[in-house]
């Protein structure tokens, strides 16, 4: 694990404003950065032996249904494409997780690339979370359609994002770190009425 005392997350400067918005919403909305999560971009043949051995060795099965996620022990897999997943783990687990993947896959061609610092993760939770996202996301986020266990690569406002439904009232937004400030500003703006409604 690299030196962590000097590291800085893309939205470190937004923490106060996100917390203030959460507070003002009086329970309507919780919005916060989840910094330093481990994100590995995985490319692998879904029909190969590595994919078969994956669940046993890595601790999570690779979902094959488009737009779905699978949760394992200390790791989660998000379907991004027919042969692409994002593996998500707690902060600092990138090396160990990558080693497990390589152990599962063996000599089979695979690409495991650390993209943790490339992403910022925002959690939107609370009864108004989906309403806030609906200001800038054209896909249907209704729990009937996009409930827990679903993820989607889409646009939120003008930023490409991965959305992950963590529950009926919680959606995670994964965004490229260079877009993170824009998106956080946009979310705070989009929350304007929803925050006031909860006050």
């Amino acid at each position: 694990m690299a030196e962590t005392s000097t590291r800085r997350s893309p939205l470190a400067g937004h923490a106060d404003r996100l917390a203030a918005a959460t507070l003002r919403s009086a329970g309507a909305l919780r919005i916060e950065e989840q910094p330093f999560r481990t994100h590995l971009d995985l490319r692998l043949d879904p029909s190969g032996p590595g994919a078969g051995a994956f669940a046993g060795v890595v601790g999570v099965a690779l979902p094959v249904e488009p737009g779905t996620t699978a949760a394992g022990t200390g790791v989660e897999a998000l379907w991004l494409g027919p042969d692409e997943w994002l593996l998500v783990g707690p902060p600092g687990t990138d090396g160990e997780l990558a080693a497990r993947v390589h152990a599962a896959v063996g000599d089979e061609p695979v690409s495991v690339v650390d993209v943790s610092a490339q992403h910022a993760t925002l959690l939107l939770a609370g009864p108004r979370a989906r309403d806030v996202l609906a200001h800038g996301c054209s896909i249907d986020l209704h729990p009937r359609v996009f409930g827990a266990g679903h993820c989607a690569q889409t646009m939120l406002a003008r930023a490409p994002v991965v959305l992950v439904a963590d529950g009926p009232d919680a959606i995670r937004v994964i965004v490229r770190s260079s877009f993170a400030r824009y998106l956080a500003d946009w979310l705070l703006d989009a929350a304007t009425e929803h925050i006031a409604a909860g006050a």
Binding site: A157, Y182, D185
Partner: peptide, 15 residues
């Protein structure tokens, strides 16, 4: 709508 001023187009920044 809100696509004006600073929110008109994303500004991408480095670390």
């Amino acid at each position: 709508g809100r696509d004006r001023g600073a929110l008109h187009d994303p500004v991408r920044v480095t670390a």
